[in-house]
């Protein structure tokens, strides 16, 4: 029980500075001590950085030692972690040593970047497949969404814009050029609807923040006996 009280007090006290920094007048000097706080908070946060590495190593080492299916992949993962870690540190300390820079560059620019970029590029295939299989006019909502999406798609590619290029560039008729229709959709209805969603969401966030700050939040993580 005392632990929970301690945590509640800690959470509350941790938030006091920024709360008062905002509500108090500038003369209070609270804003001026910000440069003393920021650099120190960074250090507390960054200390946690090895946690992920340790956890990942522990998990994969377990697989390797127990010879679980796919253990060789886990071994590759562990080797990759430490090789890349070492290379990153070495390239900082030895920026003029050719082999360090070459090896670092090979692993970073020619292995890590292509792998990362390619994994995300798979999404292009999936969205194409989804366009065919999932984007269907099953209701009025879906139809509105589809119509807007089509205008936006046509308005943002040169071939789509070419359809209405015969319209004049200025004057009332120019409003009907596809790129201008797209701009209007984005600027007015989309922007207004997004703002409505934002208002709803931000009020929720504010309420949630208050609950967290005052330790009123409930749920498995917050209620767990400590």
């Amino acid at each position: 029980m005392w632990r929970r009280i301690f945590i509640s007090i800690l959470t509350f006290v941790a938030g006091l500075y920024f709360f008062f920094e905002y509500v108090m007048p500038r003369e209070s000097g609270l804003t001026d001590i910000m440069p003393e706080i920021g650099p120190r908070v960074i250090i507390i946060g960054v200390t946690a950085i090895f946690l992920g590495m340790i956890n990942l190593t522990r998990m994969h080492l377990h697989k390797v030692v127990r010879r679980r299916p796919g253990w060789y992949n886990s071994l590759a993962c562990i080797i990759a972690i430490y090789v890349m870690f070492l290379l990153t540190v070495l390239q900082y300390f030895f920026p003029k040593t050719a082999w360090v820079i070459h090896t670092y560059d090979t692993f970073f620019q020619y292995v890590r970047i292509p792998l990362d970029a390619t994994i995300f590029s798979l999404l292009a295939y999936y969205i194409a497949s989804a366009a065919y299989r999932a984007f269907r006019i099953k209701s009025v909502e879906a139809t509105v969404m589809l119509a807007v999406a089509l205008f936006v798609m046509l308005g943002q590619i040169p071939m789509g814009q070419a359809i209405t290029r015969w319209l004049p560039e200025t004057g009332y008729l120019s409003w009907f050029r596809l790129e201008n229709i797209k701009l209007w959709i984005m600027d007015v209805p989309n922007s207004a609807a997004t703002r409505g969603i934002l208002f709803g969401g931000m009020i929720g966030t504010l309420a949630m923040s208050l609950r967290l700050w005052l330790s009123l939040e409930r749920g498995s993580f917050f209620d767990a006996e400590v």
């Binding site: 969205i127 194409a128 366009a131 065919y132 299989r133 999932a134 984007f135 269907r136 006019i137 589809l146 999406a149 089509l150 798609m153 046509l154 943002q156 590619i157 071939m159 789509g160």
Partner: peptide, 12 residues
Amino acid sequence: HLWVILMVILGN
């Protein structure tokens, strides 16, 4: 884009 639009139309 044209291809995706075609897919949407065909799908529908």
